[in-house]
Each structure stands twice: as structure tokens, then as C-alpha cells.
């Protein structure tokens, strides 16, 4: 049998098995490259206006802080919703303090979390659909290291959610429909539907078969397109 006929046979048969994965790769690949990654990350869901520190708001000194919390680490003085706050960690976890009075703000309550979410959300008047406290078993879109968090779901066609740490008041994660689709696309792209790890055996088998199938396809391209004129009669005869 000729190169042409063999290639045609093997391309046809191999693609019966891996052809669908080619569609999956190209659909998921196209989705991932067309949507801007910053948009996928939800960067456009929030305003990034940190607010300037004002000395008149800082009446609780770092010396006092260390007296109350001698093992404090990673101390940071920053702005939260227009108020100066301290963030720090110690062996008991992360904490948030009012920098004016020194009163402990963490863990923040629901109202406070909603306030932060509204303050940061790109459209401040958007209605909130649901607020929930997550202390364990985080959803797939949230890393467990951020727990505990308040999840604030906004109205809107892309179902945006902001996750706010109850201990620091920081927005630790932002998610929306397109991130969730992207995540699915990625797992289908690497053929690992649980761990999303590209070094799996299934992917290996499919890539190798796909490479072989594509090489036969390349031979067909050569015959069809580049030897088209000289071989036209022959190909017509053989394909009958």
C-alpha cells in the first residue's frame, strides 16, 4: 500500500479515538487565550484605591501593640475603608486592630464584611445576593489557606463573589462566572479533572496518539495540497 493510502487509513482511525479531544483542546485553548487573564482573575471587579494614611487617625502606638501582643509579627499599618488599622499575626493567627483606639476588630462580623465588599466592588450600588461564613470545606474556587472567610455574592449575570478574610478584612479571592469556566477549561485542556495537573498518564497517551495521528495528517496535507496537480488523477482513482 502507498504512503497516501496508509496515511489516510491511520489518520481516519486514530482520529476516531482522539479527534474529540482535539475539539476539546481547541475549544478550551481558544477560550483561555481570548479572555484576558486579568479579567479572568477578577481584577476588574474591584476598585484599587487603598486610601492614604492620616496621622490623626493613628493614636494607638506600635509600642502599645507590642505590650499587648509581645509575639506580634508582620505588623502593618494600613487603611481599611478609610480608617487606619493594624494587621499582624502571632501564634494564634492573624489579627486586625483599630489604629485609633487599639480595639480588636477581628474576627469581623457580617456587616463589617459586607461594608468592605461594597466599598471595594466596582459598582457600589449592586445588590448583594447572599452572604455566608466559611470556616471549613472551602469551595473549589477558594484556597483553604484563606479560611475563615466571609463570602459575599453580588447580583449580576456573571455571579461575582468576593471572599473576605474574617481575620484581616482583606479581599483574599475574587471569582466570577468566567473564572469558573476558565477553571473547567483548564482541567479539560490538561485532561486532569480533579487535580488539574498536566503530568498525568491520560494526557500522555492522548498526546502521543495525537502526534502520530497528526503526522499521518501532515502526509495527507502534502499529497492533497502540494502534490495536488501532479497526483490529482491518481488520488481520484484511489479514493473511489
Amino acid at each position: 500500500m502507498s504512503w497516501y493510502r496508509n496515511s489516510r487509513k491511520y489518520h481516519k482511525w486514530l482520529m476516531l479515538f482522539v479527534g474529540f479531544q482535539f475539539v476539546v483542546w481547541s475549544v478550551s485553548g481558544a477560550f483561555m487565550v481570548i479572555f484576558d487573564l486579568d479579567y479572568i482573575h477578577g481584577d476588574s471587579l474591584i476598585v484599587n484605591e487603598p486610601g492614604v494614611l492620616n496621622k490623626s487617625q493613628i493614636n494607638y502606638s506600635i509600642a502599645k501593640l507590642y505590650r499587648h501582643y509581645p509575639n506580634a509579627k508582620n505588623v502593618e499599618l494600613t487603611n481599611l475603608q478609610g480608617n487606619a488599622v493594624y494587621r499582624f499575626s502571632n501564634d494564634k493567627g492573624k489579627h486586625l486592630l483599630n489604629a485609633d483606639t487599639g480595639s480588636l476588630l477581628s474576627p469581623i462580623n457580617e456587616n463589617y464584611a459586607v461594608g468592605i465588599a461594597k466599598y471595594s466592588y466596582i459598582q457600589p450600588d449592586t445588590a448583594i445576593k447572599q452572604v455566608s461564613l466559611i470556616t471549613e470545606n472551602p469551595p473549589f474556587e477558594l484556597s483553604a489557606r484563606h479560611l475563615p472567610v466571609w463570602r459575599v455574592d453580588f447580583e449580576g449575570f456573571s455571579n461575582p463573589s468576593l471572599y473576605i478574610s474574617t481575620l484581616t478584612g482583606e479581599i483574599v479571592t475574587k471569582r466570577h462566572l468566567f473564572w469558573r469556566i476558565f477553571d473547567w477549561m483548564f482541567s479539560f485542556h490538561v485532561m486532569d479533572y480533579v487535580e488539574e495537573d498536566a503530568s498525568n498518564k491520560l494526557l500522555f497517551v492522548f498526546i502521543v496518539l495525537s502526534l502520530v495521528a497528526s503526522l499521518f495528517g501532515l502526509i495527507l496535507t502534502y499529497f492533497y495540497v502540494f502534490k495536488r496537480n501532479s497526483n490529482k488523477k491518481k488520488i481520484v482513482k484511489e479514493s473511489v
Binding site: 487603598p50 486610601g51 492614604v52 494614611l53 508582620n74 505588623v75 502593618e76 499599618l77 494600613t78 487603611n79
Partner: peptide
């Protein structure tokens, strides 16, 4: 230059 935060 505004100061947004001071971190130790």
C-alpha cells in the same frame, strides 16, 4: 508622595 501603608 502619599503613604498608603507602613509595614514593618
Amino acid at each position: 508622595k502619599p503613604v498608603n501603608s507602613i509595614k514593618l
